[in-house]
Design a protein around this nucleic acid. Structure first.
Lengths: 268, 268
DNA sequence: TGAATTATGTGCGTTACCGCACCGACGGCA
DNA sequence: TGCCGTCGGTGCGGTAACGCACATAATTCA
Protein backbone atom coordinates (compact mmCIF):
# COMPACT_ATOMS: atom_id res chain seq x y z
CA UNK A 1 0.00 0.00 0.00
CA UNK A 2 1.34 3.39 -0.98
CA UNK A 3 1.59 6.41 1.27
CA UNK A 4 -1.30 8.76 0.53
CA UNK A 5 0.87 11.81 1.13
CA UNK A 6 3.20 13.06 -1.56
CA UNK A 7 4.90 16.39 -2.07
CA UNK A 8 3.65 16.70 -5.64
CA UNK A 9 0.14 17.06 -4.30
CA UNK A 10 1.37 20.62 -3.97
CA UNK A 11 1.32 22.16 -7.43
CA UNK A 12 4.53 24.11 -7.01
CA UNK A 13 6.51 21.09 -5.91
CA UNK A 14 4.74 19.02 -8.52
CA UNK A 15 5.68 21.43 -11.28
CA UNK A 16 9.41 21.23 -10.64
CA UNK A 17 11.62 19.46 -13.14
CA UNK A 18 12.69 16.09 -11.81
CA UNK A 19 16.26 17.16 -11.07
CA UNK A 20 15.25 20.06 -8.87
CA UNK A 21 12.47 18.10 -7.28
CA UNK A 22 14.85 15.35 -6.24
CA UNK A 23 17.16 17.95 -4.86
CA UNK A 24 14.52 19.22 -2.49
CA UNK A 25 12.51 16.13 -1.68
CA UNK A 26 14.90 14.65 0.91
CA UNK A 27 14.44 17.80 2.98
CA UNK A 28 10.66 18.01 2.74
CA UNK A 29 8.98 17.23 6.00
CA UNK A 30 5.31 16.30 6.23
CA UNK A 31 3.50 18.26 8.93
CA UNK A 32 0.00 18.10 10.31
CA UNK A 33 -1.75 21.44 10.03
CA UNK A 34 -4.49 21.74 12.64
CA UNK A 35 -7.25 24.31 12.35
CA UNK A 36 -6.09 27.55 13.96
CA UNK A 37 -2.41 26.64 13.86
CA UNK A 38 -0.15 29.66 13.50
CA UNK A 39 2.78 29.37 11.09
CA UNK A 40 4.18 32.74 12.02
CA UNK A 41 3.09 35.98 13.60
CA UNK A 42 3.49 39.43 12.11
CA UNK A 43 7.15 40.36 12.35
CA UNK A 44 8.33 36.86 13.27
CA UNK A 45 11.35 35.58 11.44
CA UNK A 46 10.04 33.00 8.99
CA UNK A 47 11.81 29.72 9.67
CA UNK A 48 10.13 27.37 7.24
CA UNK A 49 8.50 27.53 3.86
CA UNK A 50 5.24 25.56 3.86
CA UNK A 51 3.82 23.81 0.83
CA UNK A 52 0.21 22.83 1.61
CA UNK A 53 -1.21 19.68 0.15
CA UNK A 54 -4.64 19.37 1.74
CA UNK A 55 -4.84 22.32 4.12
CA UNK A 56 -5.60 25.98 3.51
CA UNK A 57 -3.63 28.74 5.15
CA UNK A 58 -4.76 32.35 5.34
CA UNK A 59 -2.51 35.37 5.47
CA UNK A 60 -4.04 37.86 7.86
CA UNK A 61 -3.28 41.37 8.82
CA UNK A 62 -4.18 41.79 12.46
CA UNK A 63 -5.34 45.30 13.19
CA UNK A 64 -4.51 47.29 16.27
CA UNK A 65 -8.03 46.57 17.46
CA UNK A 66 -7.20 42.89 17.25
CA UNK A 67 -9.62 42.25 14.40
CA UNK A 68 -8.09 40.14 11.64
CA UNK A 69 -8.43 40.79 7.92
CA UNK A 70 -7.66 38.20 5.29
CA UNK A 71 -5.11 39.23 2.69
CA UNK A 72 -4.79 35.99 0.75
CA UNK A 73 -5.50 32.30 0.99
CA UNK A 74 -3.03 29.60 0.09
CA UNK A 75 -3.63 25.93 -0.54
CA UNK A 76 -2.00 23.24 -2.65
CA UNK A 77 -1.55 25.85 -5.36
CA UNK A 78 1.15 27.70 -3.50
CA UNK A 79 3.47 28.18 -0.58
CA UNK A 80 3.68 30.22 2.57
CA UNK A 81 6.82 32.23 3.17
CA UNK A 82 7.56 34.23 0.04
CA UNK A 83 9.35 36.84 2.14
CA UNK A 84 12.20 34.33 2.44
CA UNK A 85 13.26 34.82 -1.14
CA UNK A 86 11.67 38.19 -1.79
CA UNK A 87 13.70 39.70 1.00
CA UNK A 88 13.23 40.81 4.53
CA UNK A 89 12.45 37.42 5.97
CA UNK A 90 9.39 38.72 7.81
CA UNK A 91 6.04 40.26 6.93
CA UNK A 92 3.54 42.37 8.85
CA UNK A 93 1.08 39.48 8.55
CA UNK A 94 0.08 36.35 10.43
CA UNK A 95 -0.21 33.01 8.68
CA UNK A 96 -2.85 30.73 10.16
CA UNK A 97 -4.37 27.39 9.21
CA UNK A 98 -7.94 27.94 8.13
CA UNK A 99 -8.74 24.45 7.00
CA UNK A 100 -7.03 21.50 8.65
CA UNK A 101 -4.88 19.15 6.61
CA UNK A 102 -1.27 18.54 5.71
CA UNK A 103 1.65 20.43 4.30
CA UNK A 104 5.29 19.82 3.52
CA UNK A 105 7.76 22.18 4.96
CA UNK A 106 11.32 23.11 4.17
CA UNK A 107 13.86 24.91 6.32
CA UNK A 108 14.25 28.54 5.34
CA UNK A 109 17.93 28.39 4.41
CA UNK A 110 17.38 25.37 2.17
CA UNK A 111 14.68 27.15 0.24
CA UNK A 112 16.76 30.27 -0.16
CA UNK A 113 19.76 28.24 -1.24
CA UNK A 114 17.80 26.38 -3.87
CA UNK A 115 16.12 29.58 -4.99
CA UNK A 116 19.51 31.10 -5.72
CA UNK A 117 20.98 28.18 -7.66
CA UNK A 118 21.42 28.65 -11.37
CA UNK A 119 21.34 26.59 -14.49
CA UNK A 120 23.61 28.51 -16.84
CA UNK A 121 22.80 32.14 -17.48
CA UNK A 122 19.17 31.85 -16.54
CA UNK A 123 17.93 31.25 -13.07
CA UNK A 124 16.65 27.84 -12.05
CA UNK A 125 13.16 26.47 -12.46
CA UNK A 126 12.33 26.89 -8.78
CA UNK A 127 13.38 30.51 -8.99
CA UNK A 128 11.08 31.26 -11.88
CA UNK A 129 8.27 29.17 -10.49
CA UNK A 130 8.28 30.93 -7.14
CA UNK A 131 8.38 34.36 -8.73
CA UNK A 132 5.46 33.50 -10.95
CA UNK A 133 3.59 32.21 -7.95
CA UNK A 134 4.29 35.41 -6.06
CA UNK A 135 2.95 37.37 -8.97
CA UNK A 136 -0.24 35.30 -8.88
CA UNK A 137 -0.56 35.92 -5.15
CA UNK A 138 -0.06 39.61 -5.76
CA UNK A 139 -3.05 39.53 -8.08
CA UNK A 140 -5.09 37.74 -5.46
CA UNK A 141 -4.26 40.40 -2.90
CA UNK A 142 -4.98 43.22 -5.33
CA UNK A 143 -8.33 41.69 -6.15
CA UNK A 144 -9.11 41.38 -2.45
CA UNK A 145 -8.60 45.12 -2.19
CA UNK A 146 -10.94 45.77 -5.11
CA UNK A 147 -13.55 43.39 -3.80
CA UNK A 148 -13.45 44.84 -0.31
CA UNK A 149 -14.23 48.23 -1.69
CA UNK A 150 -16.77 47.54 -4.38
CA UNK A 151 -18.68 44.33 -4.00
CA UNK A 152 -21.57 43.21 -1.87
CA UNK A 153 -21.09 40.70 0.91
CA UNK A 154 -23.13 38.18 -1.08
CA UNK A 155 -20.73 38.34 -3.97
CA UNK A 156 -17.69 38.29 -1.77
CA UNK A 157 -18.93 35.17 -0.06
CA UNK A 158 -19.26 33.44 -3.42
CA UNK A 159 -15.75 34.48 -4.39
CA UNK A 160 -14.40 33.25 -1.08
CA UNK A 161 -16.18 29.91 -1.24
CA UNK A 162 -14.93 29.34 -4.77
CA UNK A 163 -11.34 30.20 -3.91
CA UNK A 164 -11.57 27.80 -0.99
CA UNK A 165 -13.17 25.11 -3.09
CA UNK A 166 -10.37 25.33 -5.64
CA UNK A 167 -7.91 24.51 -2.88
CA UNK A 168 -9.74 21.59 -1.30
CA UNK A 169 -10.05 17.96 -2.32
CA UNK A 170 -13.80 17.75 -1.63
CA UNK A 171 -16.78 20.02 -2.06
CA UNK A 172 -17.27 20.35 1.67
CA UNK A 173 -15.87 23.20 3.73
CA UNK A 174 -15.43 22.55 7.42
CA UNK A 175 -15.69 25.91 9.12
CA UNK A 176 -18.06 28.11 11.03
CA UNK A 177 -19.81 31.14 9.62
CA UNK A 178 -18.08 33.16 12.27
CA UNK A 179 -14.74 32.20 10.78
CA UNK A 180 -15.82 33.29 7.31
CA UNK A 181 -17.02 36.57 8.77
CA UNK A 182 -13.63 37.16 10.36
CA UNK A 183 -11.84 36.42 7.11
CA UNK A 184 -14.03 38.74 5.07
CA UNK A 185 -14.06 41.35 7.81
CA UNK A 186 -17.84 41.53 8.08
CA UNK A 187 -20.43 40.67 10.71
CA UNK A 188 -21.24 37.07 11.40
CA UNK A 189 -24.91 37.85 10.82
CA UNK A 190 -24.03 39.16 7.40
CA UNK A 191 -22.65 35.76 6.46
CA UNK A 192 -25.67 34.01 7.94
CA UNK A 193 -27.90 36.07 5.74
CA UNK A 194 -25.82 35.70 2.59
CA UNK A 195 -25.38 31.96 3.12
CA UNK A 196 -29.12 31.70 3.70
CA UNK A 197 -29.78 33.15 0.29
CA UNK A 198 -27.34 30.76 -1.35
CA UNK A 199 -28.92 27.82 0.41
CA UNK A 200 -32.38 28.96 -0.61
CA UNK A 201 -31.16 29.09 -4.18
CA UNK A 202 -29.95 25.51 -3.82
CA UNK A 203 -26.28 26.37 -4.38
CA UNK A 204 -24.98 25.26 -1.02
CA UNK A 205 -26.05 23.28 2.00
CA UNK A 206 -25.28 24.50 5.48
CA UNK A 207 -24.93 22.43 8.60
CA UNK A 208 -23.42 23.48 11.87
CA UNK A 209 -19.78 24.00 11.00
CA UNK A 210 -20.09 22.58 7.50
CA UNK A 211 -20.86 24.06 4.11
CA UNK A 212 -21.36 21.76 1.18
CA UNK A 213 -21.24 23.21 -2.29
CA UNK A 214 -23.98 21.74 -4.47
CA UNK A 215 -23.81 23.97 -7.54
CA UNK A 216 -20.40 25.29 -8.36
CA UNK A 217 -21.30 27.08 -11.54
CA UNK A 218 -24.22 28.66 -9.76
CA UNK A 219 -21.75 30.17 -7.31
CA UNK A 220 -19.58 31.39 -10.15
CA UNK A 221 -22.56 33.13 -11.67
CA UNK A 222 -23.23 34.94 -8.40
CA UNK A 223 -19.62 35.76 -7.63
CA UNK A 224 -18.14 39.08 -8.62
CA UNK A 225 -15.58 39.36 -11.39
CA UNK A 226 -12.80 39.20 -8.81
CA UNK A 227 -12.90 35.44 -8.59
CA UNK A 228 -12.46 35.03 -12.30
CA UNK A 229 -9.65 37.54 -12.48
CA UNK A 230 -7.71 35.70 -9.80
CA UNK A 231 -8.41 32.28 -11.27
CA UNK A 232 -7.54 33.28 -14.82
CA UNK A 233 -4.34 35.00 -13.82
CA UNK A 234 -3.33 32.10 -11.65
CA UNK A 235 -3.91 29.59 -14.45
CA UNK A 236 -2.00 31.76 -16.87
CA UNK A 237 1.03 32.15 -14.64
CA UNK A 238 1.10 28.62 -13.29
CA UNK A 239 -0.14 26.08 -15.79
CA UNK A 240 0.10 22.61 -14.33
CA UNK A 241 3.19 21.05 -15.85
CA UNK A 242 3.32 17.67 -17.45
CA UNK A 243 5.65 16.72 -14.60
CA UNK A 244 2.84 16.80 -12.13
CA UNK A 245 0.41 14.62 -13.97
CA UNK A 246 3.07 12.13 -14.98
CA UNK A 247 4.26 11.77 -11.40
CA UNK A 248 0.89 10.44 -10.43
CA UNK A 249 1.95 7.20 -12.11
CA UNK A 250 5.54 7.24 -10.93
CA UNK A 251 4.65 7.96 -7.37
CA UNK A 252 7.57 7.51 -5.02
CA UNK A 253 6.71 8.22 -1.43
CA UNK A 254 8.65 10.76 0.57
CA UNK A 255 9.81 10.22 4.13
CA UNK A 256 6.87 10.74 6.43
CA UNK A 257 8.21 12.48 9.46
CA UNK A 258 4.82 13.68 10.60
CA UNK A 259 4.96 16.42 13.14
CA UNK A 260 2.29 18.78 14.34
CA UNK A 261 2.28 22.53 14.50
CA UNK A 262 1.76 24.27 17.77
CA UNK A 263 -1.91 25.04 17.68
CA UNK A 264 -2.75 28.43 18.98
CA UNK A 265 -6.33 29.25 18.37
CA UNK A 266 -7.71 31.92 16.13
CA UNK A 267 -9.64 34.29 18.28
CA UNK A 268 -11.74 37.35 17.71
CA UNK B 1 24.59 74.54 -15.53
CA UNK B 2 23.82 70.95 -14.67
CA UNK B 3 20.87 69.01 -15.90
CA UNK B 4 18.25 68.89 -13.15
CA UNK B 5 17.20 65.36 -14.11
CA UNK B 6 19.17 62.40 -12.93
CA UNK B 7 18.30 58.72 -12.71
CA UNK B 8 19.36 58.50 -9.08
CA UNK B 9 16.45 60.72 -8.16
CA UNK B 10 14.72 57.38 -8.30
CA UNK B 11 15.60 55.50 -5.14
CA UNK B 12 15.92 52.11 -6.78
CA UNK B 13 18.33 53.35 -9.43
CA UNK B 14 20.07 55.43 -6.80
CA UNK B 15 20.58 52.43 -4.56
CA UNK B 16 22.42 50.38 -7.14
CA UNK B 17 26.12 49.76 -6.71
CA UNK B 18 28.12 51.90 -9.12
CA UNK B 19 29.01 49.00 -11.40
CA UNK B 20 25.45 47.96 -12.00
CA UNK B 21 24.27 51.54 -12.21
CA UNK B 22 26.75 52.31 -14.95
CA UNK B 23 25.65 49.21 -16.74
CA UNK B 24 22.09 50.45 -16.94
CA UNK B 25 22.48 54.20 -17.20
CA UNK B 26 23.33 54.38 -20.92
CA UNK B 27 19.99 52.77 -21.65
CA UNK B 28 17.88 54.94 -19.38
CA UNK B 29 15.64 57.28 -21.26
CA UNK B 30 14.07 60.34 -19.68
CA UNK B 31 10.37 60.60 -20.44
CA UNK B 32 7.76 63.24 -19.69
CA UNK B 33 4.85 61.78 -17.77
CA UNK B 34 1.70 63.86 -18.35
CA UNK B 35 -1.27 63.61 -16.04
CA UNK B 36 -3.53 60.83 -17.23
CA UNK B 37 -0.87 59.18 -19.38
CA UNK B 38 -1.33 55.42 -19.66
CA UNK B 39 1.80 53.26 -19.37
CA UNK B 40 -0.05 50.07 -20.14
CA UNK B 41 -3.54 48.68 -20.12
CA UNK B 42 -4.68 45.53 -18.36
CA UNK B 43 -3.37 42.59 -20.34
CA UNK B 44 -1.01 44.66 -22.48
CA UNK B 45 2.47 43.32 -22.94
CA UNK B 46 4.71 45.52 -20.80
CA UNK B 47 7.39 47.00 -23.05
CA UNK B 48 9.26 49.28 -20.66
CA UNK B 49 10.09 49.44 -17.01
CA UNK B 50 9.50 52.95 -15.67
CA UNK B 51 11.46 54.50 -12.83
CA UNK B 52 9.64 57.66 -11.73
CA UNK B 53 11.63 60.60 -10.45
CA UNK B 54 9.04 63.34 -9.95
CA UNK B 55 5.79 61.77 -11.12
CA UNK B 56 3.39 59.39 -9.39
CA UNK B 57 1.86 56.46 -11.20
CA UNK B 58 -1.14 54.51 -9.94
CA UNK B 59 -1.86 50.88 -10.61
CA UNK B 60 -5.58 50.51 -11.16
CA UNK B 61 -7.89 47.63 -11.61
CA UNK B 62 -10.64 48.69 -13.96
CA UNK B 63 -13.88 46.95 -13.16
CA UNK B 64 -16.36 45.62 -15.66
CA UNK B 65 -18.48 48.63 -14.87
CA UNK B 66 -15.60 50.83 -15.96
CA UNK B 67 -14.98 52.19 -12.47
CA UNK B 68 -11.31 52.19 -11.53
CA UNK B 69 -9.87 51.11 -8.18
CA UNK B 70 -6.40 51.97 -7.05
CA UNK B 71 -4.22 49.02 -6.10
CA UNK B 72 -0.95 50.80 -5.41
CA UNK B 73 0.85 54.07 -6.03
CA UNK B 74 4.42 54.31 -7.24
CA UNK B 75 6.74 57.29 -7.19
CA UNK B 76 10.48 57.82 -6.97
CA UNK B 77 10.56 54.99 -4.43
CA UNK B 78 9.89 52.31 -7.01
CA UNK B 79 9.27 51.15 -10.52
CA UNK B 80 6.40 50.18 -12.78
CA UNK B 81 6.56 46.83 -14.51
CA UNK B 82 7.42 44.20 -11.93
CA UNK B 83 5.63 41.59 -14.04
CA UNK B 84 8.62 41.74 -16.37
CA UNK B 85 10.85 39.92 -13.94
CA UNK B 86 8.20 38.25 -11.81
CA UNK B 87 6.85 36.46 -14.84
CA UNK B 88 3.98 36.69 -17.23
CA UNK B 89 4.90 40.05 -18.68
CA UNK B 90 1.38 41.40 -18.24
CA UNK B 91 -0.97 42.17 -15.36
CA UNK B 92 -4.73 42.59 -15.12
CA UNK B 93 -4.13 46.23 -14.16
CA UNK B 94 -3.73 49.59 -15.82
CA UNK B 95 -0.84 51.90 -14.99
CA UNK B 96 -1.68 55.58 -15.24
CA UNK B 97 0.10 58.82 -14.38
CA UNK B 98 -1.65 60.40 -11.44
CA UNK B 99 0.72 63.27 -10.86
CA UNK B 100 2.61 64.75 -13.78
CA UNK B 101 6.40 64.71 -13.81
CA UNK B 102 9.28 62.70 -15.17
CA UNK B 103 10.50 59.14 -15.19
CA UNK B 104 13.32 57.13 -16.69
CA UNK B 105 12.43 54.12 -18.69
CA UNK B 106 14.27 51.04 -19.76
CA UNK B 107 13.38 48.56 -22.48
CA UNK B 108 11.84 45.41 -21.11
CA UNK B 109 14.48 43.00 -22.39
CA UNK B 110 17.29 45.11 -20.94
CA UNK B 111 15.71 45.05 -17.51
CA UNK B 112 15.12 41.32 -17.63
CA UNK B 113 18.65 40.72 -18.84
CA UNK B 114 20.16 42.77 -16.05
CA UNK B 115 17.83 41.18 -13.53
CA UNK B 116 19.15 37.75 -14.45
CA UNK B 117 22.85 38.57 -14.34
CA UNK B 118 24.84 37.14 -11.46
CA UNK B 119 27.78 38.04 -9.39
CA UNK B 120 29.12 34.66 -8.30
CA UNK B 121 26.73 32.33 -6.53
CA UNK B 122 24.37 35.02 -5.34
CA UNK B 123 22.15 37.02 -7.60
CA UNK B 124 23.04 40.59 -8.48
CA UNK B 125 22.19 43.72 -6.56
CA UNK B 126 19.47 44.75 -8.99
CA UNK B 127 17.90 41.34 -8.60
CA UNK B 128 17.70 41.58 -4.84
CA UNK B 129 16.70 45.21 -4.88
CA UNK B 130 13.79 44.63 -7.23
CA UNK B 131 12.55 41.66 -5.25
CA UNK B 132 12.67 43.65 -2.04
CA UNK B 133 10.82 46.45 -3.74
CA UNK B 134 8.17 44.03 -4.97
CA UNK B 135 7.77 42.79 -1.42
CA UNK B 136 7.24 46.36 -0.23
CA UNK B 137 4.66 46.91 -2.94
CA UNK B 138 2.95 43.72 -1.91
CA UNK B 139 2.59 45.15 1.57
CA UNK B 140 1.15 48.33 0.17
CA UNK B 141 -1.46 46.39 -1.78
CA UNK B 142 -2.30 44.23 1.21
CA UNK B 143 -2.77 47.29 3.35
CA UNK B 144 -5.00 48.81 0.71
CA UNK B 145 -7.20 45.75 1.04
CA UNK B 146 -7.33 46.11 4.81
CA UNK B 147 -8.00 49.82 4.65
CA UNK B 148 -10.75 49.44 2.08
CA UNK B 149 -12.56 47.11 4.38
CA UNK B 150 -12.08 48.62 7.80
CA UNK B 151 -11.34 52.30 7.81
CA UNK B 152 -13.40 55.43 7.40
CA UNK B 153 -13.06 57.62 4.33
CA UNK B 154 -11.52 60.32 6.51
CA UNK B 155 -8.71 58.04 7.59
CA UNK B 156 -8.19 56.67 4.14
CA UNK B 157 -7.85 60.14 2.73
CA UNK B 158 -5.11 60.89 5.26
CA UNK B 159 -3.29 57.71 4.37
CA UNK B 160 -3.57 58.50 0.70
CA UNK B 161 -2.36 62.07 1.05
CA UNK B 162 0.61 60.93 3.10
CA UNK B 163 1.59 58.22 0.65
CA UNK B 164 1.40 60.80 -2.12
CA UNK B 165 3.34 63.35 -0.15
CA UNK B 166 6.14 60.85 0.45
CA UNK B 167 6.52 60.54 -3.31
CA UNK B 168 6.48 64.21 -4.23
CA UNK B 169 9.15 66.89 -4.05
CA UNK B 170 6.83 69.56 -2.61
CA UNK B 171 3.97 69.64 -0.15
CA UNK B 172 1.46 70.51 -2.82
CA UNK B 173 -0.68 67.97 -4.61
CA UNK B 174 -2.04 68.98 -7.98
CA UNK B 175 -5.21 67.02 -8.51
CA UNK B 176 -8.95 67.29 -8.25
CA UNK B 177 -11.05 65.82 -5.49
CA UNK B 178 -12.82 63.82 -8.13
CA UNK B 179 -9.54 62.11 -8.96
CA UNK B 180 -8.95 61.21 -5.34
CA UNK B 181 -12.47 59.85 -5.14
CA UNK B 182 -11.82 57.62 -8.14
CA UNK B 183 -8.59 56.34 -6.63
CA UNK B 184 -10.17 55.53 -3.30
CA UNK B 185 -13.30 54.19 -4.92
CA UNK B 186 -15.66 56.49 -3.04
CA UNK B 187 -18.01 59.32 -3.94
CA UNK B 188 -16.57 62.67 -4.86
CA UNK B 189 -18.77 64.29 -2.23
CA UNK B 190 -17.24 62.02 0.37
CA UNK B 191 -13.84 63.46 -0.41
CA UNK B 192 -15.20 67.00 -0.35
CA UNK B 193 -16.55 66.39 3.10
CA UNK B 194 -13.45 64.66 4.44
CA UNK B 195 -11.15 67.29 2.95
CA UNK B 196 -13.36 69.98 4.45
CA UNK B 197 -12.78 68.55 7.91
CA UNK B 198 -9.05 68.44 7.38
CA UNK B 199 -9.03 72.00 6.17
CA UNK B 200 -11.11 73.10 9.13
CA UNK B 201 -8.57 71.45 11.38
CA UNK B 202 -5.84 73.44 9.64
CA UNK B 203 -4.05 70.37 8.29
CA UNK B 204 -4.46 71.12 4.62
CA UNK B 205 -5.44 73.93 2.33
CA UNK B 206 -7.68 73.30 -0.65
CA UNK B 207 -7.87 75.32 -3.79
CA UNK B 208 -9.47 74.31 -7.03
CA UNK B 209 -7.31 71.42 -8.20
CA UNK B 210 -4.68 71.92 -5.51
CA UNK B 211 -4.20 70.54 -2.04
CA UNK B 212 -1.42 71.94 0.10
CA UNK B 213 -0.38 70.02 3.17
CA UNK B 214 0.20 72.34 6.10
CA UNK B 215 0.56 69.91 8.99
CA UNK B 216 2.09 66.61 8.08
CA UNK B 217 2.17 65.12 11.53
CA UNK B 218 -1.42 66.18 12.03
CA UNK B 219 -2.32 64.05 9.05
CA UNK B 220 -0.35 61.15 10.42
CA UNK B 221 -2.27 61.39 13.65
CA UNK B 222 -5.57 61.18 11.79
CA UNK B 223 -4.49 58.47 9.38
CA UNK B 224 -5.21 54.85 10.10
CA UNK B 225 -2.48 52.43 11.02
CA UNK B 226 -2.23 51.36 7.38
CA UNK B 227 -0.03 54.27 6.42
CA UNK B 228 2.47 53.49 9.10
CA UNK B 229 2.56 49.81 8.29
CA UNK B 230 3.34 50.55 4.66
CA UNK B 231 5.91 53.20 5.49
CA UNK B 232 7.69 51.16 8.10
CA UNK B 233 7.84 48.06 5.93
CA UNK B 234 9.05 50.08 3.00
CA UNK B 235 11.81 51.70 5.03
CA UNK B 236 12.84 48.35 6.43
CA UNK B 237 13.07 46.64 3.06
CA UNK B 238 14.60 49.53 1.15
CA UNK B 239 16.87 51.65 3.29
CA UNK B 240 18.41 54.42 1.22
CA UNK B 241 21.90 53.32 0.42
CA UNK B 242 24.99 55.42 0.88
CA UNK B 243 25.32 55.29 -2.91
CA UNK B 244 22.35 57.53 -3.36
CA UNK B 245 23.38 60.28 -1.02
CA UNK B 246 26.97 60.24 -2.21
CA UNK B 247 25.92 60.54 -5.83
CA UNK B 248 24.35 63.86 -5.07
CA UNK B 249 27.88 65.25 -5.04
CA UNK B 250 29.18 63.20 -7.93
CA UNK B 251 26.33 64.00 -10.20
CA UNK B 252 26.94 63.00 -13.78
CA UNK B 253 24.04 63.77 -16.03
CA UNK B 254 22.46 61.10 -18.17
CA UNK B 255 21.49 61.58 -21.81
CA UNK B 256 18.28 63.56 -21.95
CA UNK B 257 16.27 62.10 -24.75
CA UNK B 258 13.03 63.57 -23.55
CA UNK B 259 9.99 62.01 -25.07
CA UNK B 260 6.38 62.18 -24.06
CA UNK B 261 3.94 59.41 -23.35
CA UNK B 262 0.75 59.15 -25.31
CA UNK B 263 -1.70 60.88 -23.05
CA UNK B 264 -5.02 59.20 -22.83
CA UNK B 265 -7.20 60.66 -20.20
CA UNK B 266 -8.31 58.98 -17.04
CA UNK B 267 -12.05 58.69 -17.10
CA UNK B 268 -14.43 57.32 -14.53
C1' DT C 1 -15.14 91.00 -20.27
C1' DG C 2 -18.51 87.81 -20.43
C1' DA C 3 -19.75 83.06 -21.43
C1' DA C 4 -18.69 78.30 -21.18
C1' DT C 5 -16.45 74.82 -18.60
C1' DT C 6 -15.03 72.50 -14.78
C1' DA C 7 -14.45 71.97 -9.75
C1' DT C 8 -16.39 72.27 -5.30
C1' DG C 9 -19.99 72.56 -1.67
C1' DT C 10 -24.71 71.18 0.16
C1' DG C 11 -29.10 68.83 0.95
C1' DC C 12 -32.07 64.70 1.03
C1' DG C 13 -33.85 60.25 0.76
C1' DT C 14 -31.97 55.43 0.32
C1' DT C 15 -29.16 51.39 1.25
C1' DA C 16 -25.86 48.06 2.94
C1' DC C 17 -23.93 47.00 6.75
C1' DC C 18 -23.09 47.51 11.79
C1' DG C 19 -23.74 46.56 16.92
C1' DC C 20 -26.38 44.58 20.11
C1' DA C 21 -29.55 41.50 22.22
C1' DC C 22 -31.72 37.41 22.18
C1' DC C 23 -33.47 32.79 21.04
C1' DG C 24 -33.26 28.29 19.37
C1' DA C 25 -30.95 24.37 18.23
C1' DC C 26 -27.28 21.31 17.09
C1' DG C 27 -23.74 18.25 18.60
C1' DG C 28 -19.99 16.75 21.58
C1' DC C 29 -19.34 14.70 25.88
C1' DA C 30 -20.11 12.92 30.56
C1' DT D 1 -29.62 10.19 27.76
C1' DG D 2 -29.30 14.67 29.16
C1' DC D 3 -26.40 18.67 29.75
C1' DC D 4 -24.03 22.62 28.11
C1' DG D 5 -21.06 25.21 25.12
C1' DT D 6 -20.98 26.73 20.70
C1' DC D 7 -23.11 27.97 16.47
C1' DG D 8 -26.79 29.68 13.63
C1' DG D 9 -30.93 32.57 12.90
C1' DT D 10 -33.75 36.90 13.70
C1' DG D 11 -35.13 41.55 14.93
C1' DC D 12 -34.23 46.48 15.70
C1' DG D 13 -32.27 50.95 15.83
C1' DG D 14 -28.12 53.34 14.19
C1' DT D 15 -24.77 55.11 10.70
C1' DA D 16 -21.37 55.60 6.98
C1' DA D 17 -21.59 56.00 2.55
C1' DC D 18 -24.42 56.18 -1.76
C1' DG D 19 -27.00 58.35 -5.81
C1' DC D 20 -28.93 62.25 -7.35
C1' DA D 21 -30.05 66.99 -7.89
C1' DC D 22 -28.53 71.52 -7.52
C1' DA D 23 -26.23 75.82 -6.10
C1' DT D 24 -21.88 78.21 -6.11
C1' DA D 25 -17.25 79.32 -7.22
C1' DA D 26 -12.93 79.16 -9.78
C1' DT D 27 -10.72 78.77 -14.34
C1' DT D 28 -10.40 78.87 -19.37
C1' DC D 29 -11.40 80.73 -23.52
C1' DA D 30 -13.83 83.36 -27.12
Amino acid sequence: MTDPHNPWQNHLLGSLPTAEYEHLSPHLELVVMPLGGVLYEAGDEVRYAYFPTTCIVSLLYVMESGAPAEIAMIGNDGMIGVSLFMGGGTTPNRAVVRSAGYAYRLRAHLLVQEFSRFGGYRNGALHNLLLRYTQAMLTQIAQTAVCNRHHLVDQQLCRWLLLSLDRLPSNELILTQELIANMLGVRREGITEAAGKLQQAGLINCRRGHITVLDRSGLEARACECYHVVKTESDRLLPLHAQLTSRIFLQKSAPVKSESLSSRHMSR
